[in-house]
Design a protein around this nucleic acid. Structure first.
Lengths: 324, 324
DNA sequence: CTGAAAGCGCTTACAG
DNA sequence: CTGAAAGCGCTTACAG
């Protein structure tokens, strides 16, 4: 059943049917009659035709590297709930990290005429160097949720990751830890902010800086522990840029008979549920995914409604548990 | 730029442009000329207009309770990758568990003219009792990934959950465990299959059946342990229908000084990464989300292409770790 | 191989 | 308050 069928049966024109659907003005009597016909047939307007005619598809897209990463799944969930409540449908896109793939995916979204695009995470910072991608995200309302892109026309909601790590180091120092290792698991700009937070905090306290690279996995954390052992490094704290390798480190340390936190303190980052899965629960930095999603959503909504946007920086929070 | 602009610039009709876009037959020369114009303008066909005209939106929807649940995120990821590679866009929908909300969401998908719908999990079994929902999912190709729906027109890919638990019990019995507790964390049909698997396996070995309810959380697992302690129940194994409460139980048992697995064995279900987060890594049932996603995707594709469908039942696999 | 025409199901000024 | 008409950007038979 289309608008034509409804119109004929209600004895009005399609303009009138369209008007009652969209809340335009019309007499109570015709409105009643049209509604009656629509309900009798369980009529639902065709959103596609509507989108084509009105040039508003009521669709937003969430673009991320991989939704299996807990942090992205949580952000995506909040964004979906927010926009669904406002009658948008939401598309997801797991781009992976290849730039050409990302570009292809964005072109797809462009041809779908999505109303807005969310880019999750600072992995997407580097797209600003691709003119083709810039053209797209500058012509469609785009907001980056956590990142450091600097591109006119795209808003980015920042989380002060450096401060998060700074707080960690400060806390550790305040509790007598002086040999603090930092393990970096990825190379995004967000990860680099974290290292910088570590470096600056260490410098302030005149402590020696020691940064290692590790894989983003349990094994990554374990390997750091082994590496430090084989290098015979003395340390009393390990700071990680993510909870997963931190958990791996806790397991490896315990397996070696190292007491946590008395001998070595361990901290993570993100503070999702898994931070509490280990017996010695993990001290972590809560980077407030809920707030990130909420601010990003508000920012997008403001742009869609052509309202001015103001974007706060999100302050992470240190959550102390048994591992420190 | 639209098909009209391209046509004019290439000196052909829009039919011809449409034909070269869609790989219809035309002379090499005109094809070349049209392509040249399209590339010069970076022309991308409008997918919406295309969908409206052709009645194929190239969109599939993934409907689930909550994508933050690891198991769903993983399945959704695989489905998205599969269909994206075939030029579909994918919509997600976190319905929650209220039936009226689910119905509203499905109506939304209907008006969006999605080509196919995935229902993730046996939570959706009960929608088959709602005539309004049935009308929708019977008129749009729908496949349920893991569940027990029996509705003509919707295919459901089943995982033999009962067998998964059966294997657990069998293994425990074979290793000398005779007082095996089962803790059920949700009430889906899948969860009930699991309990049944437990009951049948216990019956075969003439062991006493003991089923408790627990929350789907770390605390749920902990509470079961406390409850058993306060009831002074003797047991040497705990079987859970999910990894999360199993992890909670491991922590609670260790906190009480119970040795795992020597005094009590603990098992989970799903076998996602978190099964390895505890120091005593968790024995779990791998219910093969990858295979589930893959079979579900193949099933959907067959329906979209009007090919006959055959649906295997997925066999879970017992993964032994340190907790047993 | 190619083009003119109708149609997909709506919205949106513009008249009345 | 209401309707006729044009338009959104494509696809799809149907002729030629």
């Amino acid at each position: 059943m289309t608008i034509y069928g409804i119109a004929k049966e209600a004895g009005v024109s399609i303009s009138t049917v369209s008007r009652v659907i969209n809340g335009g003005s019309c007499s109570p009597e015709t409105k009643r009659r049209v509604y009656a016909v629509m309900e009798r047939h369980g009529y639902q307007p065709n959103a596609i035709a509507r989108g084509l005619a009105s040039n508003r598809m009521m669709t937003i897209a969430i673009v991320m590297v991989d939704i299996r990463v807990g942090h992205y799944a949580h952000t995506a969930y909040e964004l979906e709930r927010f926009f669904h409540a406002r009658h948008y449908e939401v598309l997801i896109c797991n781009t992976g990290s290849d730039l050409a793939d990302i570009k292809g995916d964005l072109e797809g979204l462009e041809s779908r005429k999505v109303d807005g695009i969310f880019l999750l995470g600072s992995t997407f910072d580097r797209v600003q160097h691709d003119p083709g991608i810039c053209r797209i995200i500058q012509s469609i309302p785009t907001v980056q949720a956590n990142g450091n892109m600097h591109l006119a026309g795209v808003d980015t909601v920042r989380v002060d990751d450096a401060k998060g790590i700074w707080m960690v180091v400060d806390y550790l120092y305040g509790h007598g830890r002086h040999s603090i290792i930092y393990a970096q698991d990825v190379n995004t700009s967000s990860a680099e902010m974290k290292v910088r937070g570590y470096q600056e905090a260490m410098a302030v306290h005149h402590l020696p800086i020691h940064v290692l690279a590790c894989d983003h996995s349990l094994e990554g954390g374990r390997d750091v522990v082994e590496q430090l052992a084989s290098m015979r490094v003395d340390y009393d704290a390990m700071v990680f840029g993510d909870d997963i390798p931190a958990i791996g480190a806790i397991k490896a340390l315990k397996a070696r008979g190292v007491a946590i936190p008395s001998q070595v303190a361990v901290t993570g980052f993100n503070n999702l549920k898994s931070a509490r899965f280990t017996e010695t629960e993990l001290t972590s930095v809560d980077n407030k995914y809920w707030q990130l999603a909420s601010e990003s959503a508000q920012c997008m909504l403001a742009r869609l409604e052509h309202r001015p946007v103001s974007i706060p920086v999100i302050e992470p929070e240190l959550v102390i548990r048994q591992s420190t």
